[in-house]
Design a protein around this nucleic acid. Structure first.
Lengths: 201, 201
DNA sequence: GTCTATAAACGGATAGAC
DNA sequence: GTCTATCCGTTTATAGAC
C-alpha cells in the first residue's frame, strides 16, 4: 500500500515533514506548520495523507528504508575485513543520521509515537536493518576485533552512535567518517585506527 | 525559589509527574492525567505549580540533583584507581537511570522542552554533573585505561549509557552494575574486567 | 490538488466557593 | 488544599466549492 502510493509530490511532502519532526518533535509539530512549510493550507494536507499518524509512518518508512539501502551499499563496496565492514556500517549509519539529518533521526527518536498498526507494518524493515548490524558485530566478535557480550556490545555501539544526534555540530570540523573511525578506535584498540589515535596523544 | 518551595506534598507530586513523563513523554502528558495520577482534580494542580512548564522544571531539577548527589557519593566511596572511579561513575549513572527510572530519564530526554528561563536556571546543575564525568574520563585517559579524543570519548560513553533507557529490561537478568562492568570491559580491554569477559567467550 | 469554512474535541489555565 | 465550573485558544480532521 505504501509502496504504491508514492507520488513524487507525496515524497517531497514527506521530506519536509521529516525536517519539521526533527526540529520540533512529532507532538509539537501541528498540521498547520506542516502545511505552511509545504506551501499549502492545512486542509489540503489530508488529500495526501489520511491523518497525521500516516505522515509519521511515511517519514519513518522512508528513513529506515534509506538507512538500510545505504548500509547494504556500503557493505558491498568496502573491503572484506571485519574492521572494514564495521567501519563501513558505522559510517553509513552516521551519514544517514547526521548529513541527511532527517528521516532516519525521526525513525529512531519518534518510533514510540507510532500507533500499533504502523508499528506492526514497519517493524520488519527495522528488524532487517538491525539484523545487518548484528551480523557485522558478530563478524567483529568472531574476528577478535572487539570483545564482550553480543547483545550488550551491539546496543552500546548503537547507543553511542544514535546519541550523536544530540551533540553533533554539522558546521564543526568532524565528519561522520571521523566519528566512525574514532568510535572503532575506542572499542577495538588493536587496530590501525587505535594506533593512530594513541600516537596522536 | 525552587529550594524554598519544597513542601513534601510538592515533592510527592513531582515524583508522580516524573513517572508519567517517562511513560508518555512530556507533550503527551496532560494536566488532567497528572491530576488523576495524583488523586486530585486538574484545577488543584495549579495550587502547587504555576504552570505545566514548572512541573517539568521541578522534575528535571530533582533528577539532575539526584544524579549529582549519587555520583558524588559513589566517587567518595570507591577505590582510587581510574578504573574504579570510572566504574563507580557509570554504575551510579545507570542506577539513577534504570532503577529509580524516572526523574533522571526526564532530565535527559525532555531537556529540550524546557523554556529558556528554566534552562538558564538549571544549566549550572547540569554542567556540574557533566564536569564530574569529564573529570573521571580525564583520569582514565591520563591513566592509559582508555584512549582517544577527550570530547568524543566522553560523548560516546554517555551515549552508550543514556541509550540503555530504550532497551533495558528491569525484569531481566542484568543489573545496572553489570552493564557498567561490560561497558568498561568494551572500551578498556587491558583491565581485569576485560580479561574476565574475553575468557568467558 | 487546493481552497475556505467549520465541526468537534481537547488543551492549559483561572475564579471563586468550601 | 481541593473542588466545581468554565473560559478560550488550539488541534485534528471533514465537507464541499473551485
Amino acid at each position: 500500500m505504501n509502496v504504491v502510493n508514492e507520488s513524487p509530490r507525496r515524497k517531497e511532502l514527506t521530506r519536509l515533514a521529516a525536517q519539521l519532526f526533527v526540529q520540533e518533535g512529532f507532538d509539537r509539530t501541528t498540521v498547520r506548520m506542516l502545511a505552511q512549510e509545504m506551501g499549502i493550507k492545512s486542509g489540503s494536507l489530508f488529500h495526501h495523507f489520511r491523518d497525521k499518524q500516516e505522515i509519521l509512518a511515511a517519514v519513518i518508512e522512508e528513513g529506515t528504508q534509506n538507512a538500510l539501502t545505504l548500509a547494504r551499499h556500503a557493505l558491498e563496496q568496502c573491503g572484506g575485513s571485519a574492521e572494514d565492514r564495521l567501519h563501513a556500517m558505522a559510517r553509513a549509519h552516521l551519514e544517514t543520521l547526521l548529513t541527511d539529518r532527517n528521516a532516519h533521526v525521526v525513525a529512531l527518536y519518534e518510533w514510540r509515537r507510532l500507533d500499533s498498526e504502523a508499528r506492526a507494518h514497519l517493524s520488519h524493515l527495522r528488524d532487517a536493518y538491525e539484523a545487518l548490524w548484528e551480523a557485522v558485530i558478530d563478524e567483529a566478535l568472531d574476528d577478535g576485533l572487539i570483545r564482550g557480550d553480543r547483545f550488550l556490545v551491539s546496543r552500546f555501539v548503537m547507543g553511542a552512535l544514535n546519541w550523536t544526534v544530540r551533540w553533533y555540530d554539522p558546521e564543526g570540523p568532524r565528519k561522520p567518517e571521523d566519528l566512525a573511525h574514532e568510535l572503532i578506535a575506542m572499542i577495538a584498540p588493536s587496530t590501525q585506527a587505535a594506533q593512530a589515535v594513541s600516537t596522536k596523544v
